[in-house]
Every structure is written in C-alpha cells, then in structure tokens.
Nucleic acid binder design. Sequence first.
DNA 1: AAATAATTCAAATGTATATTTGAATTATTC
DNA 2: GAATAATTCAAATATACATTTGAATTATTT
Lengths: 218, 218
Amino acid sequence: MSTPKPRRPDTRTRLLTTASRMFAEKGFQETTIADICKQAEANIASVNYHFRDKENLYLQAWRFAFQLDLAAHPVDGGVPCDAPANQRLAGRIRSLMGRIDDDNSHFFAIINKEMAQPTQLLPEILVKEINPQRQAMMAIIKELLGSAASEQNVQYSHASIIGQCFHFARMKHMLANSQLPFELPDELDATAYTEHVIRFSLAGIAALRQPMSGNGEI
Amino acid sequence: MSTPKPRRPDTRTRLLTTASRMFAEKGFQETTIADICKQAEANIASVNYHFRDKENLYLQAWRFAFQLDLAAHPVDGGVPCDAPANQRLAGRIRSLMGRIDDDNSHFFAIINKEMAQPTQLLPEILVKEINPQRQAMMAIIKELLGSAASEQNVQYSHASIIGQCFHFARMKHMLANSQLPFELPDELDATAYTEHVIRFSLAGIAALRQPMSGNGEI
DNA sequence: AAATAATTCAAATGTATATTTGAATTATTC
DNA sequence: GAATAATTCAAATATACATTTGAATTATTT
C-alpha cells in the first residue's frame, strides 16, 4: 500500500502558511509573533531563527501567498490572447474576482491592508506585481476604446474596474472580520457581482466612444 | 478697530483637530498619544484628562471631523430634489468626491482605515452615517434603472459607484503617504475623474436596462 | 483677595510584545 | 557512532506605549 503520508510540514513552512493567513486577517501591526507561533505550533523564537525578524517574515509570507494565488488563478482567466478584447477583459476581471473571493488567497487582503497602512512592502508589490497587470489590462481597455483611447480615458476606465473589484474585497473582508450588527450588502455573491462588473464596465467603456452625450446634465 | 483675534484654541480643541488629522493619516494603532500631544502642543497627560483614553479620543475626533466635512460638502451636492434622477446622482457623486479630495476632510481617510482594520467605531459609522447615504443613493439608482430595478441590480450598481470613488481615495492616500519610487496613476485630477465616474456609471446603469446583450461573450 | 475648581505638567508605573540568549534537543555528516 | 551542525525551547531582556499620579499652576467663584 502506497503510504500517502500527509506529513506535518516543517516549522518554516508552518510559519509561512500561518503568518500569511493571519497577516491577511489582521494586518502587520495587529498580528503578534506570539499569536503566529501559537497557531503554527512553533516556539516563540522560531520566527527570529528562520526569518530574522517580524518584518522579514511578513515579506516572505506575502511572497509565499502570492505564489499560491497566482498558481490557482492565472491572470488572463484562461482566455486565449487572440480572443476578442471584451472577452479578454472579462477573463481578467473573472480572474481578479476569483482571487478576491478565494478564501485561501490572501493576496488581496494583504494588499488591501498595505494600501490603508503602507509598510516598506507596498512599493515593491506595486512595482513588481501590480504594475505589470495594470499595463496588461490597460492595453485591452485601449483596444476597446478605439479612437477614444486617450491616456486619461484608459487610466480612468482601469481605475473604474479595479475600484469595483476592490470594493467587493473590502465588503467581504469587513463582513468576515468585524461583527456587524446587521448585513450591509444583502447579496455577497461573487459570481453574480463579477458578471455585473463586466457588463457595467463594458457599457461604461463603450459610452466613452460616444461623442459625449449630456452626462450629469439632462 | 475690531480685533480679529485668531486666538489659539483651547487644549481640547487642539487635540481634536490634531488627532483627527493624524488618525486619518496613520490610523488608530500607528498614531501614538505622545505624537498627537507633541503636535497639538499639549501635555502627554491631557488626552487622559480630556478624553479618558485613546480610544475615546479617536471616537470624538472622528465625530469632530465628520461634522466639519458634512458642513463643507452637503450630501446632495446642491442639486434640488425635484431635479431629474441622473442630475441628482451626479450631485451625490460630486459631493462624495469633493469630500474625498478635500485635504481638510478626514472622513474618508478614517473610514478607509476602519474598513481595513475595524475598531468598535466601524459599526457605529456604518449604521449611523453610511447606511442612510447608501439608501438615498440607491433610491436614485432605482429610479434610473426603471423596470430593471431588481434589488440586486440596485445594490450592485451602488457598489460599482462607491467602489470607483473609494478607489480614488485610496490612490490619493497612497501617493500622499507612502514614498513611492514612481507615479502610478499619472493623472490624479479629482474633477476629471469625478466626471468620468458619472459618465461611466450612468452608461453602466443604462446598460442594465437593455435586455442583456452579450457581455463577456462577443 | 481668599477659596475652590479646573487644568497643566514631569515623572513614575504598568503592560504588551519584539527580540535575544544559552542550554537542550534533534538531525546530519564524517 | 562520534562529531558537528541545525533546530527547538523556556526564560530573560529590551522597547515602545498607554495610563496614572500627585504636585504645580492657572482660572473661576464667592
């Protein structure tokens, strides 16, 4: 009989796994080394032994989480690159939302925290991970905008899409963490909201191609 | 000669002013009483004397900031309530963005922090301040959606709009605080982005009224 | 102006938590 | 299997803060 052996991972790995989850839940400041070690069933000194200090553990934990997320959710959403632009955009939005909705993906939770309370990690994340994805999505948006593809239209449309996605991330996180005395967003259905964002955004982009009908005015 | 007398405000007021600014900048945890007192030119013990403890100062500072914000930016954006729905929506979006862009308005910065790292303050803010505004904006969206005004369409459209606005708040805050080695959003023009959000969102809402053309598909 | 209350102040105390230490244990190499 | 390196451990140390204290000062009342 082949022994499957679900062996207990080594201390370093347990720390990374636990830390990424806890940092995602409570942020850098509010997560204590003592808590991480307790949940990871490791000694209090193991963080300093394996990672030098808390800040470095935070950095490594984020990278660790990022690798897992990316493997589980390819950024193009599985849409081939010769597909029409609207499908490619939809694929990317679905991938983004998939990562946000995946409870094992701590990518966005950590970024969300970072954006509210930046550490030295944020600039690295932005440059190395966020910016490339941003450029790729903006290229698609540019295609969709056609002759209306001014730099500003492209950037703002991108911001509109990302903003909608991040908002879901925040809602989800808030509901999960804070013990709210009521339910704010009655429906927190990731799939339905994802399709809404796609439809809403494609219409928004399409409208930018029109010669500018009265907006805000009648 | 009438003496204008720009007198130094009393300790309590100086603490509230300084605290609301600092909490907005760095959040509850990362702001120390010592820092607040130094900047407010008050003694270290004055917080405990005037506000019992740090948490209560935080609460009072938020209320203080909220009052100022609301006075400076009426929520309806000055649009009369008998104006057409798209204008009323535009008014509310402009008011929202106005508050976000106003450097003396610490309302959103604090909420932003709260959403990432909730304290006991968050539930109160949501119930008392956010929810009423949310209901008002959703009523307008409902009008605009007409026969397509399902509960889900209304909620999701609202989320789309708020998400876009909050995203600007985050961008602005990130650029202001973190020392980024580059400029992410090339244009951080609040007015231009506001008009973009209005146009983008009205088109998104209008699209929901259509029988459902292929979205994401061709 | 004396008496009383409110406020400010510098220093002390308490607490939470990151980090270090050196011995004990386990794994790896020769 | 002895020697060496890697890892774990409980306890000690260090640091950053919030909070308290009681005296000193200022403002208010009578």
